[in-house]
Computed example of a mutant assay.
Amino acid sequence: MNTHGPDTYGRLNADVYDEWHADLDPTDAVHRLADLIDQGPAGPVLELAVGTGRVTIPLAARGVDLRGIDASEEMVQRLRAKPGGATIPVTIGDMVDVDPGTDDDFAMIFVVFTTFFFLMSQEDQVRCFANVARRLLPGGRFVLECLVPDLARYQRQQSVDAHRVDLDHVRLVAVRHDPVEQRFAGQHILISNDGIRLAPVAMRYAWPSELDLMARLAGLDRRHRWGGWRHEPYLGTGTHVTVYEKPARPAS
């Protein structure tokens, strides 16, 4: 896993990503993001780590002026092959830089499905927050959907879970946990009659309070924290959706 880089996950998972995550319905996320866009300043919207367009395409279909960044050309090719995907401007690059190839500032920047944790160091996560703040319009929002790590599930800092068991294949997820670096290193393992398929994933998690501190350092204020896209109460477990805001300029 030492050679795992920003493009590794997409390069090795693009051809199976949509199939393996077919149960993820983007409807609630798209609806809530659209509401937040309507409540904020006028301007374009930027998604970090657009992937295959699971959220990007239906949100753009609502008329949102949407741009994207992703490290994986393979994932973006999948997006561009879908109806509506080819018209969304996407830059190939590292999301830490928040550089969509234009000089525009944004009404909203968002990253979903815990993908923010693909930034593998605290330094990169802090830098991403700072770059997001720099590119937001006054009153603009930074929205993150992140997991809350359940460290109790790791015995001897490791776990193996069966995500799917069918007649002709089994999909497992094996993970090792580094509590010092706050990192997970894992493999999706597909065992079928055709053989064994490995798809690695690595992430550096951050606790919600740590994200709040990153936001504060970047000059962003926390406005909301929900337990999901339907405004569920945040109870400290599972996932959270957090909205940070760039303060509006003081009146002259």
Rank of each mutant, 00 (worst) to 15 (best):
G40C: 09
T91G: 10
V148I: 15
M108C: 13
G43N: 07
Y244N: 11
V45C: 05
D212F: 08
F110Y: 15
V90E: 07
T91M: 13
E232F: 10
F110W: 07
L59E: 00
F113A: 05
Q39P: 03
D161S: 13
I57F: 09
G186N: 05
V50F: 12
R249G: 02
R135T: 05
E123Q: 12
G10S: 10
V170A: 11
I191S: 13
A202P: 01
E19S: 05
R134Y: 14
I69N: 00
I189H: 07
V30W: 00
G84F: 06
C146R: 06
F106W: 04
P233M: 04
T87H: 13
V243I: 15
E245N: 05
T242Q: 10
D23P: 02
A185T: 09
G195R: 08
H31M: 06
D221E: 14
A162E: 14
E47I: 03
V112S: 07
P26T: 03
A174D: 02
T3V: 04
R183K: 14
V55Q: 06
L24E: 10
A81T: 03
K82P: 12
G238C: 14
F184R: 03
K246C: 08
G40L: 08
P89V: 07
S121C: 11
H169W: 13
V132P: 00
V64L: 11
D15K: 12
V30K: 00
R204W: 01
Q125A: 09
M203P: 03
T87I: 09
I57W: 03
T115R: 07
F129H: 08
L172V: 06
E232W: 09
G85M: 07
I189C: 10
G195K: 13
G85S: 10
H177R: 14
D105M: 11
Q187V: 03
R32L: 15
D38M: 12
Q158H: 13
R225G: 10
G219N: 07
G139W: 01
W226L: 06
G236P: 07
D105N: 09
G53N: 02
I57C: 01
F184L: 13
G140W: 01
A133W: 03
D25K: 04
N131R: 14
P58T: 04
E232K: 03
G227A: 09
A202G: 02
A14R: 08
S159D: 08
A61H: 09
L136Q: 00
Q122V: 08
Q39D: 15
S252D: 11
P26H: 03
V112G: 00
G10K: 00
R32H: 11
H188C: 04
L33G: 00
W20C: 02
S252H: 12
T56W: 01
V180H: 06
P44D: 07
V90M: 09
P200F: 02
T242L: 12
